[in-house]
């Protein structure tokens, strides 16, 4: 874990999700990208010769670098998806 949750008036209710098989508590209203950052997961996919890890860049839906598998569907943008109870997130950058 490398990130921290700060005091935040609009934080939603806790939701239980799984990140690469590991149970994680997130909060309603958070994007998947935010949760990944909080959990210190920055490498999200692999690309290029030698398949080095890649991570999110823009945070706002345009670069497609934050693609992860959500509930079995590949290529979902982490920065454009809000967490939901029971969500399963898989990253490919490990």
């Amino acid at each position: 874990m490398s990130g921290r949750r700060l005091p935040y008036p609009a934080r939603g209710a806790p939701v239980a999700i799984r990140l690469n098989g590991r149970p994680v508590t997130a909060f309603a209203g958070e994007t998947v990208f935010a949760v990944l950052c909080h959990e210190g997961v920055f490498a999200l996919r692999r690309g290029g010769p030698g398949r080095p890890p890649r991570g999110a860049l823009c945070g706002m839906g345009v670069c497609q670098e934050c693609r992860v598998t959500i509930d079995g569907t590949p290529d979902r943008r982490a920065c454009m998806t809000l967490v939901a109870e029971g969500m399963e997130i898989e990253t490919d950058g490990r």
């Binding site: 490398s2 990130g3 609009a10 934080r11 994007t31 935010a34 950052c37």
Partner: peptide, 11 residues
């Protein structure tokens, strides 16, 4: 945007 969501992503 992360800060605005109440998350400090690193130290």
């Amino acid at each position: 945007m992360l800060l605005k969501q109440g998350i400090l992503p690193a130290a």
